[in-house]
């Protein structure tokens, strides 16, 4: 209660010192971790859109004489068995890894949205059916489900993307169903009905956008997870195929030399870890901001 009172007090003091200055000062401050994550995300973005801006060498240029050189000023992350610059290959692989991660998340979200919407708004029978299907999907470990898809359609980056997307869908479906249900019964949907708006308009303008706010934050978290999964599949030789510079594939290729040339595995691995970390931090920052708005 005192919080509410303080808010209104802050508002009463004058427009110039509203919510933000009185109470929000502490909470609005951007954390240094978020700044670092943003900086890293910017690096990833550049690496995806224009990798040549960041590269110090051509990613697939072979130089057998320079093979297995450790990290140095000339080759920041060292070179691999064919003398290719690992740093430039890591930068090159960003696009592929992120594309797989982002499209897999998008596929998972799209399927989750359809299943969730059908379950939440399609009546009790459909809710039951979708719920049981979801539970079956949940019962499989995600990676097993992905392997099943690859067995059916053969290895490759596209199949890997679809496989990862499929196995993340049940989780999204559940969350979206819950969000849709609570928004369906909310006061503002009722208010829209009383104004005489039709069901499709209400769904498109109120229910869906509001359900997607928390899901968007969740998807940011999901991208990091999807990158890990896609890399795992590539590592198993089921995703991107060599010589494509994809982080998982690079890990797999470097495994052979793990005792003699640690830089072949450590740097792609580090990129996976940092990407996951950065998207997670950003996802949390979005969630926190969303929480304040609600």
């Amino acid at each position: 209660m005192s919080d509410v009172e303080l808010r209104s007090r802050a508002a009463a003091v004058g427009p110039e010192c509203g919510r933000a200055s009185a109470l929000g000062a502490g909470t609005r401050r951007v954390r240094p971790g978020t700044v670092l994550a943003l900086a890293f995300a910017a690096f990833l973005l550049v690496a995806t859109v224009a990798p040549s801006l960041l590269q110090t060498a051509a990613p697939n240029a072979i130089a057998p004489r320079d093979a297995f050189s450790p990290p140095s000023l000339a080759h920041w992350f060292g070179t691999d068995e064919s003398g290719r610059d690992v740093y430039s290959r890591v930068v090159q692989g960003t696009g592929a890894s992120l594309a797989i991660g982002a499209s897999a998340t998008a596929i998972g979200l799209a399927i989750g949205l359809i299943l969730g919407a059908v379950a939440a708004l399609g009546g009790s029978v459909l809710d039951f059916v979708v719920g049981r299907v979801n539970e079956v999907l949940f019962a499989f470990p995600g990676i097993l489900l992905a392997l099943l898809v690859i067995v059916l359609w053969g290895p490759g980056p596209v199949t890997a993307t679809i496989a990862v997307g499929l196995s993340t869908a049940p989780g999204y479906a559940r969350i979206i169903r819950g969000e849709l249900l609570s928004i369906r019964d909310s006061g503002f949907v009722e208010a829209a009905r009383v104004l005489g708006h039709g069901p499709f308009r209400i769904f498109a303008r109120h229910v869906l956008p509001n359900a997607l706010v928390p899901v968007a934050a969740l998807a940011t978290l999901g991208i990091g997870q999807a990158v890990v999964w896609a890399s795992s599949l590539s590592y198993l030789g089921l995703g991107a195929q060599p010589p494509a510079a994809e982080w998982g594939a690079m890990l797999a290729a470097g495994r052979t030399y793990i005792t003699t040339a640690w830089w072949l595995t450590v740097f792609p691995g580090l990129m996976i870890v940092l990407t996951t970390l950065a998207t997670t931090v950003l996802g949390r920052a979005i969630t926190a901001r969303d929480g304040r708005r609600r």
């Binding site: 006061g187 503002f188 009905r193 005489g196 708006h197 109120h206 956008p209 509001n210 706010v213």
Partner: peptide, 22 residues
Amino acid sequence: RRPQRRRIGAIWQDPFGSFDPR
């Protein structure tokens, strides 16, 4: 009924909950 709905308006105990938060 929908085209007629505007003729009966409503206000609730919790106005905030009856506004789309976005």
